[in-house]
Amino acid sequence: MNSNWRKIFNIIQKPERIIIGLMSGTSMDGLDIALCGVSGSGTDTKVRVIEFKTVEYTETFKAEIKSIFSRRDADLQMVCMMNEKIALVHSEMILEAIDSWGYKSDEIDVIASHGQTIFHAPKSLHGLDGYPDGTLQIGDGDHIAVKTGIVTIADFRQKHIAAGGEGAPLAVYGDYLLFSKKGEDRIMLNIGGIANFTYLPADNDAAKVFSTDVGPGNTLMDQYVQKNYSGLYFDKDATIASSGTISEALLSELMLSGFLDADFPKTTGPELFNLGYLEQAQKASGTMTIRNEDVLATLCCFSARVIINAIEKCFGKAAGPAVYISGGGIHNPMLLDQLKKGLYNASFHTTDDLEINPDAKEGVLFAILANETLVGGNTNFGNRQGVPSVTMGKICLPY
């Protein structure tokens, strides 16, 4: 037997696998590294988060990624080189994190690497006849495996598309396996660059579970801050937005996207919700000259409104689901306040209440997907659009 497969065979037999889950989102602020102990599979999955850290990107590295991110005119040579460079940078970050935690590489069974999304192109966005759904995450898994010496599972979204999904969001799988609770309707709300949620029904029926993007989370606010405030990448604690006044005219125009009225499940990205979208809305609403802080206040309200509308669409205005929030949006007090006021019957929590650090949640979910690739893959989510019952990820061998 090839020594790589012998190693994987031994990992599969272990009662608990030590898996590092990686996530770098559209905010491009850094790499989330979650060191997890994962046992069981399917609905018997158990996870303990052993260590977690976010390693910030340098300004130069951020600029390199931004030069090819969500751009139709991206330099193909740069895309090619960054596929390798991102993997090598991530590998160094992983090795440093492992060392800082007192571990050695041979004590880690698997790395689950999401990669860095640089373009997301489902049919619903590109609208081109004769072309399929598409998405691209770079940060080559083979480079990570060879550099770290650890089996790496990467490129999860391609199987989802091949099996009839749109490549996003993938949280539905881990959310269902970890967080479903009999007798409680739950919304697992992740507010990253794009806001998405997973609906977990109180009857625990996997065939009813779905995950969907709902619209912009932090992406428009972050893009606007980066353009208009030198040296800032986001509006920390909503300090700028809180000093502004919401423009109802601009808000009404922002809410006119056809995506917001589309049925669940659906997926989107900065390819739609970007500064061009904002500029078009400002021109149409006659708000090109309002203050920057008023624009930010309106963008924050826009994100809150699309989340509120999506949850009400799922449950109705009178229902009171339990909403568990994760992602960078948990650090925006203005956004959270608007959500609580708009969904006054809901109970709000973070995933801390479920013993998962909300900042670590996405990394943990990819660790779960890797675990399912190795020992699971038997959960049936029904024959539905957007939630194919598939095993995801490509296995990259270290030697």
Rank of each mutant, 00 (worst) to 15 (best):
N2K: 05
N10M: 06
R17T: 01
L22R: 14
G25D: 04
G25P: 03
T26K: 12
T26G: 13
G30Y: 00
D32T: 14
C36F: 13
S41L: 10
K46P: 03
I50A: 08
F52L: 04
K53N: 12
T58A: 05
T58F: 07
T60G: 02
T60A: 07
T60L: 05
K62R: 06
S67M: 00
D73H: 00
D75M: 06
E84P: 03
S91H: 11
A97W: 09
A97V: 15
I98R: 07
I98Q: 10
I111K: 10
A112G: 11
A112F: 04
T117Y: 13
F119S: 07
Y131M: 08
Y131N: 03
Q137L: 00
G141L: 13
A145M: 11
K147A: 14
K147I: 13
I150D: 01
I150L: 14
D155P: 15
A163D: 02
A171Q: 06
G174P: 09
D175T: 01
L178M: 03
L189P: 04
N196S: 12
P201R: 11
P201H: 09
A206Q: 01
V209K: 04
D213R: 14
G215I: 00
P216H: 03
N218P: 02
L220P: 08
V225N: 03
S230F: 06
S230R: 07
F234H: 06
F234P: 01
D235G: 11
T239R: 01
I246K: 15
S247Q: 10
E253M: 11
L256D: 15
L260A: 03
T267K: 14
E271H: 00
G276D: 13
I290E: 15
I290T: 12
N292W: 13
V295M: 12
V295C: 09
V295K: 12
L299Q: 01
A310C: 12
E312W: 12
E312R: 14
G320I: 09
Y324S: 02
G328I: 04
G329L: 07
H331L: 14
M334I: 09
L335M: 01
K340G: 08
K340P: 02
K340V: 05
Y344D: 13
T350R: 09
T350F: 08
D352C: 02
D353Y: 14
D353H: 15
L354K: 11
L354G: 05
E355I: 06
D359V: 15
A360L: 14
G363Q: 04
F366Y: 03
I368P: 07
L369I: 04
V375S: 05
G377V: 10
G382P: 09
G382H: 10
V387P: 07
